[in-house]
């Protein structure tokens, strides 16, 4: 069962978090062609968020061709045969986050080697078995 990991206190709007997570799950093959996503109402009730937020995310994903609306069936995942995107495409999805991290590293005056080591460390920490949770938002 596909699970979202929504962080209300994040600077990323909730609809954008949903779009990003579904897109990544399809690219990684965790969501496959024909898989059904829970209804807008079910997602809103489960995660206690405004249904309009879910609806906005689903509409965007539909416009991008990631999801397809089926009458009476909710939203179906539309992925090409071969399951998941090629590594190159998945890397392209990672690129914006990398650029953001690179900018922050440069602004903080962190040497490239130190930044790479920190990224490696973070990757290891977020491996499955570690529950996949992101660090809770700091107050």
């Amino acid at each position: 069962m596909f699970r979202l990991d929504l962080q209300p206190s994040s600077a990323t709007p909730l609809y954008r978090q949903i779009v990003d997570q579904v897109t990544r799950a399809v690219a990684a093959g965790a969501l496959r062609d024909g898989d059904e996503l829970p209804s807008v109402r079910a997602v809103a009730q489960q995660y206690v968020i405004n249904p309009m937020t879910v609806s906005k995310a689903y509409s965007l994903l539909e416009a991008q061709g990631v999801l397809e609306r089926r009458r009476g069936m909710g939203m179906l995942v539309r992925a090409r045969e071969g399951e998941g995107a090629a590594t190159g495409e998945r890397l392209a999805l990672l690129q914006p986050a990398l650029e953001q991290a690179a900018r922050a590293a440069r602004q903080l005056g962190i040497a490239p080697d130190d930044a790479l080591a920190a990224f490696q460390q973070t990757l290891l920490q977020s491996m499955p078995g570690d529950d996949g949770q992101e660090t809770p938002h700091e107050y």
Binding site: P8, S9, Y47, V48
Partner: peptide
Amino acid sequence: LLDDLERVAT
């Protein structure tokens, strides 16, 4: 309770 507002506010 800003977290609550984040969940529901448009």
